[in-house]
Design a protein around this nucleic acid. Structure first.
Lengths: 326, 326
DNA sequence: TTGTATGCGTTATCAG
DNA sequence: CTGATAACGCATACAA
């Protein structure tokens, strides 16, 4: 490995001069030219670890994601990585695989790696999370959930829920079935649901709520039980994945979508456009969420003050899986 | 930040003793007990950078992936990360976003970060790749493509192709349409196709090949053009994504699957089981590929010799999207 | 503008 | 079994 010392020797100067040259300090034109050549010839690059040891700045930021194959986090990750790359930072992705302990562990691991900041794609913020953040003393941005003590990038889940609920009502549906998730997930389990229900207030709607998980397969199985008995004409899945699980069950049960049943989801995943019929859904700006998270984190790392909550907009996309009651 | 020096002072020993204690060297029971307490109390952890500076070993390995939302790479990544975590290594994921330049750039970036090794999920290995690997002098494992100069974990694509081709033939299909991809992707574009075609040799098959990309949308658009005219009774998509694109087009064109058209794909993606009808496909052990890649890389880092090619098996999963000719 | 000296936190060597 | 010391590669205060 070629070090700053090798360069200094070849150039016949002190290594401190080379260091200055590298970091934009005062160097004479002549030595600068000489160093230009020598550095290029050896294609020398400074040792990041030696630098970090001094500078206390690693130019690495960690991301903790709940699982790898989520359209939402993947899109956000893309935005995040891109912004980070432009500002010469490296993204370190850790997959917690839906496991809370691994999520906490990841915070500590990343802190040990001395990342400059952490982006957490969260379902839930527990006291253990807070403790871990406390101890690691690292700037944090949370994506997808809101929390009073941390900087958050969130989606307007209440609006999203309301859009779908109001759309169903406006199209004459009076019996509506919702496949939701546990309240542990604040954004989806509580806020989004609240938005949906708000649309029903004072409207004489028969409304049923059943609880499932984020898994396509679980939604499918539950739908297989629930659908045959339902009188509902409009079904809302709390995510597009859930909607797809429901759709599969409906197909197998020969319940035509949208004639027998309207179906809507949330997310705007690519796959909702590839199935038949295409699924009505709410499009969330996941990519922008990633970019925004990078922005905020970078500012935080610089020591700047930032607003605690950034709420992103979303909009309903009406497609063939839903129709008005005749 | 609490350092080895602080610990040493508190314990009234030399820091070298603490270091030995930390790294399993010879320490008396008494000082060991004392250090146990002090280290715990301060919850001291060694500074990774100072360690890396000495050890020339960062315990980080880099993964370069072509894109984030690929079922295949996500599964492999999961296996990879898990194995790495068990051996106390950190995974650094870099998304090249289908861009060859960014792929090359990533190799250099990771090398600068001094990762101990690199796992490349590749579509194609160009001379630039080779050059980058050469210069970075880092152990490399390539997943999904084979190359004579590097350690590779590959799938038996020829067998996979043959399975599907032979299945179609055995079920009486005589006119077969294949949606393939460019030959730049050796594994899918050449080997897999070769396997398919091998099954047709000497069988009096009318065989048509059309070329598309890996994108679901592209396959859909192409299918919309090609399907109306085709006399084929069996369609093979080179990946499950392509198959899904074809399926959407078939739905829109009111061509019933499987009665009018049998449809098969490759991969075993979860989504093939969630659509209706479920798609016949070849299941590849992506997760195992990741685990195996981690294994090999770790050995390589230790300086051990390893076989250059590991080929993984796969098997056909027959589902409702295909049926025999009546 | 340049060079010298020192420290960052750790591990390894070697003498005690 | 322990401690002093050098070394890893770099940045910087200070002197020249």
């Amino acid at each position: 490995m070629v070090t700053i010392n090798d360069i200094a020797k070849q150039a016949g100067v002190a290594k401190s001069t080379v260091s200055r040259y590298l970091n934009g300090g005062a160097v004479s034109e002549k030595t600068k030219a000489k160093l230009d050549a020598i550095v290029a010839r050896n294609d020398y690059t400074p040792n990041k670890f030696a630098q970090s040891l001094k500078a206390k700045r690693t130019h690495m930021v960690g991301a903790i994601i709940p699982r790898l194959n989520s359209y939402a986090t993947n899109e956000a990750l893309k935005g995040l990585e891109n912004s980070l790359r432009l500002s010469k930072n490296q993204l370190l992705i850790t997959n917690a695989d839906q496991n809370r302990e691994r999520e906490i562990e990841a915070i500590y691991t990343l802190a040990k790696q001395k990342v400059d900041g952490i982006v957490l794609f969260a379902a839930e913020i527990t006291p253990e999370h807070e403790k871990a953040f406390e101890e690691s003393a690292t700037p944090v941005v949370i994506v997808g959930q809101s929390h009073p003590n941390y900087h958050c990038v969130i989606h307007d889940d209440e609006k999203a829920g309301y859009s779908v609920g109001a759309y169903a009502v406006a199209n004459g549906h009076r019996n509506i079935l919702v496949f939701g998730v546990d309240e542990a997930d604040q954004a989806v389990g509580i806020t989004r649901r609240k938005g949906i229900e708000k649309a029903f207030v004072g409207k004489d709607i028969t409304y049923t709520f059943v609880k499932t998980s984020f898994s396509m397969m679980d939604a499918y199985k539950l739908a297989l039980e629930v659908l045959p008995e339902t009188k509902a004409t409009f079904i809302i899945g709390a995510t597009d994945n859930i909607a797809i699980g429901i759709m599969r069950a409906a197909h197998e049960l020969q319940m035509d979508i949208p004639n027998r049943l309207s179906l809507a989801g949330f997310g705007g995943y690519e796959i909702t456009e590839a199935v038949h019929p295409r699924i009505t859904t709410v499009h969330f700006p996941f990519h922008e969420a990633g970019i925004l998270a990078a922005d905020i984190l970078l500012q935080l790392i610089e020591g700047k003050e930032m607003p605690y909550v950034e709420k992103l907009d979303n909009h309903l996309m009406i497609r063939e899986s839903t129709q008005a009651i005749k």
